[in-house]
Design a protein around this nucleic acid. Structure first.
Lengths: 339, 339
DNA sequence: TTGTACGCGTTATCAC
DNA sequence: GTGATAACGCGTACAA
């Protein structure tokens, strides 16, 4: 393809020529910065619109060596959790003029790294990652480049840059203590396999501690992977050894807990008389159930909003708190009871 | 900020200097194109890695006047539908080397247009929009620029460029005919207000026709907006005039249908004996229920994958079908029965 | 208030 | 096989 003078897209130069002014006058007019008389500005803005001129962000980014792109990596959007986080974030970033380059990693650090590398090639203004554990090479690079980085959902005392999330160990602990205090002593857990969802592993740890503290039986753990969470919950319940007589089952999420509860009832067990069911996240689903699921509400949308705001502050040269730990709210529900 | 020779990020020039070759040799080496001896290529690639050189996509996009960015606009991610579509799409585009600039419009054409304008400034390789109805100015611009555009979820004989989706009117018709054939004659519908979700409006139209064809009573319509779909479904059911004695209620989605079913049971109605419940989409949720919801399965993931593949073909200069209409599958369920 | 010169980091082209 | 040069579209710095 020959390198002809100009393609079909018209640039700032064309507008300048047509208006009989210099390129810079057009640039200033369009951007709305000082240095142009109101008269010429109006004339030029109108002309630009008529000619169908649209600024080229890539060229601008190159010229000012910074962009209005923000990379966002989420593990999945197939449950309400990260969709909530994302919608809170996007709204806030959008209003500040940022576009989002997004992907989901499926909890795979390698995919996260590959996405990050591709995204970093666009010299984004910042990166938003989920969790606080990442591919070591990626982490090192981000540290070295001093790129503004927001880590969400989890918190750590040693973030790459800033983080906004909840204390998952504490959340697991709080939820499990509530249940343990009701007298349950034969707990089971249905969730992701160890090492996949690191936040879930933290919560599991809290659960183990809470039940150990009351001298309960060791927590049985069942792992399920992928697929729809309702189905996974039902399938996970099916994998439990019922002869083992668990008296309460904790699930990775409310959706899974619901699926598990359905499976329990299908197996002839009544909830909570025969077995207790506990979820996680406090999704709205549970509010429409005749028997609300015992769970703990995570501030998902707030994580998104607060995270975005904190990041924006950071981008504006301020020095926001590096670590923001948001509270969760226990929701007792009716799928467990005094034993 | 002074315009010093070079900032901290190192560019292709630095590598060239360090390697004692010209910039073009580095460029060719990195890109893996012909014109460099294997020896120097290897030397340079290694050196570049050591020096921490990373290509700048903005500069490349500027030079070649085309990018590897694809814009994706979805109405929402707060239900499984578009999350499914997206995951199918992303995976396919990702493998082809494209990054996604994403946003959700909340069914607002103005927001879609604003997002599109901002995204177009990055000179994306293509745009993916949901539905076939958009802001007229946006549509005109896309037509004029001849940008590859994929419209998903809905189909039309007159797409901007190419479209992959389902026939919503037909889906509504099929589902409603199935229900009407069972003897139901007092239908109601709980969904979005007219004019908001245009695809839903099409389905409603199919429903109206199916029931008119059997001489049933006019379909009662209840509108709910925003919020969680489970809650909206329950709330929508609550708005029905029960003295009006509807015998079957269609919902916008399966999630809403579930919420509605819960509300029905809370109101003392048994499903399907007192009232029938019908959903839409065939989400996995319904498979774990003791009584699967009568619904119609939409090929969400396939829309994403097929759409992405079609778009890629288009980007590769091929001429794929402009319109791809994917089939839906009726799922009879057990929330309606012979009357 | 307006214009000129240069650089941002990369690739296409053509000459060597 | 390798290099010099001119774009790509725009913004900064400084002169007029």
């Amino acid at each position: 393809m020959p390198r002809g003078r100009s393609t079909d897209t018209i640039g700032i130069n064309d507008v300048a020529r047509a208006a009989g002014v210099s390129l810079m006058t057009v640039s200033r007019s369009i951007r709305g910065v000082d240095g142009v008389s109101d008269a010429t500005r109006q004339r030029i803005v109108r002309l630009a619109r008529e000619m169908g001129y649209f600024p080229n962000s890539a060229a601008r980014a190159l010229a000012v060596t910074n962009s209005t792109l923000i990379g966002i990596s989420l593990p999945t959007l197939l449950n309400d959790v990260f969709a909530d986080v994302l919608s809170g974030m996007r709204r806030t970033l959008d209003r500040a003029g940022y576009s989002s380059v997004m992907d989901t990693s499926d909890y795979d650090p390698a995919r996260e790294r590959e996405w990050a590398e591709r995204t970093l090639a666009w010299r984004p203004a910042a990166l938003i990652l989920t969790g606080t554990t990442h591919d070591p090479a990626l982490r090192a690079r981000l540290l070295r480049e001093r790129l503004p980085v927001l880590e969400i959902w989890d918190v750590t005392d040693d973030p790459i840059d800033i983080c906004v999330g909840i204390d998952h160990l504490d959340a697991g602990l709080t939820l499990a203590r509530h249940v343990a205090a009701l007298g349950y002593r034969r707990p089971a857990w249905v969730g992701a396999p160890p090492g996949l969802d690191l936040r879930a592993d933290q919560r599991f740890r809290g659960l183990v501690r809470a039940f150990r503290d009351v001298g309960a039986r060791e927590v049985r753990r069942v792992s399920v992977t992928g697929g729809n969470s309702f189905v996974a919950g039902a399938g996970g319940f099916g994998q439990l050894d019922l002869r083992d007589r668990p008296d309460v089952v904790f699930f990775l999420t409310d959706n899974m807990a619901f699926g598990g509860m359905m499976a329990a009832q299908k197996a002839g067990l009544s909830v909570p008389d025969d077995i207790g069911i506990v979820g996680f996240n406090g999704l709205d689903l549970t509010t429409v159930l005749p028997r609300p699921i015992t769970t703990i509400r995570t501030p998902r949308r707030q994580i998104g909003v607060t995270g975005a705001k904190t990041l924006l502050a950071r981008l504006n040269g301020l020095h926001p708190d590096a670590v923001t730990r948001l509270p969760c709210e226990l929701m007792p529900g009716a799928t467990v009871r005094m034993r």
